[in-house]
């Protein structure tokens, strides 16, 4: 599966557009629960636990998007975008979306 933020795949032509595919996941990120995060709020710096948490969440959203694309019979997802929005306080939705296409 080719994934790209561009609108085309080099040296290949788009045979068919299969529509939008998306994958998302909602994660809670209650910073107060984590002692290290609390400490980092005083001294500043990277919150590695959170970086990993969100990175994993994004991997999952991305994998779900690819699953959808596969189900549609696509071999590439182009113009991929990521988006993050907070659903309620302390929880956020991570979304990956793009256009599923067949390229040759």
């Amino acid at each position: 599966m080719i994934t790209s933020t561009l609108e085309t795949v080099p040296d290949k032509t788009i045979r068919e557009h299969l529509g939008i595919v998306q994958g998302s996941t909602v994660r809670a990120k209650h910073i107060g629960r984590d002692i290290m995060a609390g400490l980092k709020n005083i001294v500043g710096g990277e919150l590695k636990g959170y970086t990993e948490l969100l990175s994993e969440a994004r991997d999952e959203a991305f994998a779900r998007m690819l699953e959808q694309a596969e189900a549609k019979g696509a071999n590439a997802v182009i113009n991929v975008r990521f988006s993050t929005s907070s659903v309620t306080q302390g929880a956020s939705e991570i979304l990956a979306y793009g256009s599923a296409v067949i390229v040759e």
Binding site: S4, P10, K40, E46, T51, L54
Partner: peptide, 11 residues
């Protein structure tokens, strides 16, 4: 071509 990404949470 392939998608790449990098992220960081910082306080």
């Amino acid at each position: 071509t392939t998608l790449v990404r990098g992220s960081v949470v910082i306080s």
